[in-house]
C-alpha cells in the first residue's frame, strides 16, 4: 500500500523507534517510560511498517509468531515473581541483585525489570497480533 517515500521513511524509522522503545523501557523505573509505553512505541513502529510495506514484510521482519510473544511475555512476568520465594519472601516481592561487570562497572539486575520486559513483550504481541490479523485476515 505504501509509497516510495513512506517505505524509505519506515525503513529508517522502525529501528529508531525500536531503539527508543528499549530506551523508554529501561529508564522507566526512574523517568517517564516503562514496559507498557515502550511496548506501545515498538508496536506503533511495526504498525507503521505494515502500512508502508505489507503484512508479509512485517511478519518476516518479526521472525516469530506474534502470538508467541504473548505467551513468552506472560511467562516472564509470572517467573519474575518466583525468585522471592527463595529468599523467604512473598510471591512478587521484588529482588535486586548488584554486581560488578568489568567493562561497565556496577550493574543492577532486578525482578521488576524482568516483569517490565514481560509487559513490553505482551503489549507488542497484542498490538501486532491485532494489526496483522485485521490487515490480513486470510493469512
Amino acid at each position: 500500500m505504501g509509497s516510495m517515500i513512506l517505505r524509505t521513511a519506515a525503513g529508517f524509522l522502525l529501528p529508531l523507534l525500536l531503539l527508543f522503545s528499549l530506551f523508554l523501557m529501561l529508564r522507566g523505573h526512574d523517568e517517564p517510560g516503562g514496559g507498557f509505553i515502550a511496548g506501545l512505541v515498538a508496536a506503533g513502529g511495526f504498525a507503521f511498517y505494515t502500512f508502508a510495506f505489507d503484512t508479509r514484510h512485517t511478519r518476516r521482519l518479526l521472525r516469530v509468531d506474534t502470538r508467541s510473544l504473548l505467551g513468552v511475555g506472560l511467562v516472564m512476568a509470572v517467573l519474575s515473581g518466583v525468585p522471592a520465594a527463595f529468599f523467604g519472601q512473598p510471591f512478587f516481592a521484588s529482588q535486586w541483585f548488584r554486581f560488578t561487570l568489568p567493562p561497565f562497572g556496577e550493574v543492577t539486575v532486578s525482578t521488576p525489570l524482568l516483569f517490565d520486559i514481560g509487559v513490553y513483550l505482551v503489549v507488542v504481541g497484542v498490538i501486532t497480533t491485532i494489526v496483522l490479523t485485521l490487515a490480513d485476515p486470510e493469512h
Binding site: H29, G34, R67, A77, F92, V119
Partner: peptide, 29 residues
C-alpha cells in the same frame, strides 16, 4: 529503588494487578 512512582506501582507494588491486566490484553488479542 525507583523514582518514577507510576512505573514502580505498575511493576512492583501492584505487580499482581498488572499481571492480570496483561493477561486480559493477551486474551483480547
Amino acid at each position: 529503588h525507583g523514582r518514577n512512582i507510576v512505573n514502580v506501582i505498575l511493576v512492583d507494588f501492584r505487580a499482581l494487578d498488572t499481571l492480570g491486566e496483561i493477561t486480559v490484553l493477551a486474551l483480547a488479542a
